[in-house]
Amino acid sequence: MTYSAMHLTVAVSVAYALTGNLAISLGIGLIEPAVQTVAYMIHEDAWRRAGSGDQVTDAEPDPWNA
């Protein structure tokens, strides 16, 4: 909870510093975590898919690396 509160405070503060408008800053501060959550899920799924092709499926060890 404290991290979420800090994140919201930082997001609203940065948005306010850039816009000078409290209403817009609050909107950005509330929307940004939702967008970030979706972006995180997409990133993790892409990372998982990219890594799945690198896994060795051979049960036998490589004779050169034995």
Rank of each mutant, 00 (worst) to 15 (best):
N21T: 08
Q55P: 00
A11K: 01
D45P: 00
T9M: 15
Y16Q: 05
A34Y: 09
M41N: 00
V56E: 14
D62N: 14
I31K: 01
I24A: 12
M41Q: 10
G29W: 04
A34C: 08
N21G: 04
R48M: 07
T2K: 12
H7I: 07
I42P: 06
N21P: 01
M6W: 13
A66P: 00
A17E: 10
N65I: 09
V12S: 04
L8Q: 08
G27W: 01
Q36F: 15
Y3L: 13
D58F: 06
Y16V: 03
A11T: 14
A59L: 15
N65W: 10
I24N: 00
M41L: 12
A66K: 09
I28Q: 01
G53L: 03
I31R: 03
S4P: 00
A59M: 12
A39N: 05
S52C: 05
E32K: 04
A15N: 05
L30D: 01
V38D: 01
R49W: 00
T37W: 13
Q55H: 09
L26I: 15
L18G: 02
W47N: 02
H43R: 05
T57K: 06
G53W: 03
G53T: 02
A17D: 08
L26C: 09
V35F: 15
E32C: 02
N65F: 14
A17R: 08
P61S: 06
V10A: 11
Q36K: 14
A17K: 08
S4Y: 12
V56M: 06
E60I: 02
S52G: 04
D45M: 02
L26Q: 05
A66Q: 11
H43G: 06
E44G: 00
P63N: 03
M6P: 03
T57A: 11
Y40R: 09
P61V: 11
I31H: 01
V10S: 02
V14H: 08
D45T: 07
I28P: 03
E44N: 08
G27A: 13
A5N: 11
I28G: 00
I24M: 07
W47H: 10
S25C: 08
N21F: 03
W64R: 14
D58S: 11
P61K: 03
R49K: 10
G27M: 09
E32M: 10
T2E: 15
Q36L: 15
V38K: 06
V56H: 07
M41V: 08
A17V: 04
E44L: 04
W64S: 13
A50K: 07
M6Q: 10
G27N: 03
I42W: 09
D45L: 05
G27L: 08
Y16I: 04
V38M: 10
R48C: 02
D54V: 01
Y40D: 04
V12H: 11
E60D: 13
V38R: 10
I31F: 14
Y16R: 02
